[in-house]
Simulated assay, not measured.
Amino acid sequence: MHRMLMFIFFATVGLFACSGEPTSPKFSPSKAMSDSRALNPYYSRTDTTKLDLPDSVWKKVLPPEVYEVARKAGTERAFTGKLWDFEGIGTYYCAACGNALFRSDAKFASTCGWPSFFETVRPGSVEYRTDMAFGMARTEVLCGRCGAHLGHVFDDGPPPTGKRFCMNSIVLDFEPDEGD
């Protein structure tokens, strides 16, 4: 009986966590970057200065679907994001502020339905916060520059770190390495 109740609980949590609107399964790096930066004067690939902006500013400068995940801790539905199975070689940036987050050589196929990485691009590129939503303790991953919600990190990833940074595609921009 206890196992059945636990199964029902986690199945329900999974449905709520994945109830966002799906995004386009095809990915165009140039379109994603232009969408994120078009009205956003805070977007920079080189500035690492911390941003402390009110929510009202973020609502004006971010596309609605990015705002929902980045500022309201929303979640994309599994297997629907633009980057979950993307295999390009390059760097992943925060779609809200342009902060460098992950390199493609740290990305792996975790089969969870979201892009997964085993390490960040540098110390301080992300921050962590305890997330008690849905009655379970998880570690939320936030952009180290602007505080955008990116996803969660788990201790079931591959070597060498054993970490699985499970990120929402909508809050990531991808820039291919030159020549790719």
Rank of each mutant, 00 (worst) to 15 (best):
159 P>S: 12
174 F>Y: 06
27 F>R: 01
70 A>P: 02
7 F>W: 09
35 D>P: 00
33 M>D: 04
48 T>F: 08
40 N>M: 10
99 N>S: 14
127 E>R: 11
36 S>H: 09
114 W>M: 04
86 F>S: 09
99 N>M: 13
133 A>V: 05
35 D>E: 15
90 G>Q: 10
151 G>T: 08
123 P>M: 00
95 A>I: 03
81 G>V: 01
70 A>L: 08
30 S>G: 02
21 E>T: 14
70 A>R: 00
19 S>C: 12
6 M>F: 01
167 M>R: 02
116 S>T: 15
13 V>H: 00
31 K>P: 00
91 T>F: 07
21 E>G: 02
40 N>H: 08
56 S>P: 04
127 E>Y: 00
82 K>R: 14
27 F>P: 01
25 P>I: 05
73 A>S: 15
114 W>L: 07
77 R>V: 03
83 L>S: 01
99 N>P: 06
161 T>Q: 06
171 V>W: 01
57 V>S: 11
177 D>Y: 14
56 S>C: 08
150 L>Y: 05
107 K>V: 12
135 G>M: 06
40 N>Y: 05
146 C>N: 08
133 A>G: 10
33 M>T: 12
12 T>P: 02
137 A>C: 08
81 G>E: 03
87 E>G: 08
6 M>H: 00
84 W>L: 05
22 P>M: 01
23 T>G: 15
20 G>P: 11
159 P>E: 13
52 D>Q: 14
86 F>W: 08
180 D>T: 14
118 F>I: 01
73 A>H: 12
55 D>Y: 05
39 L>H: 13
178 E>Q: 15
74 G>M: 05
109 A>F: 04
53 L>S: 10
95 A>Y: 04
18 C>Q: 13
85 D>K: 12
36 S>T: 07
80 T>N: 01
51 L>I: 14
67 Y>F: 15
111 T>L: 14
113 G>Q: 12
96 A>K: 01
99 N>L: 07
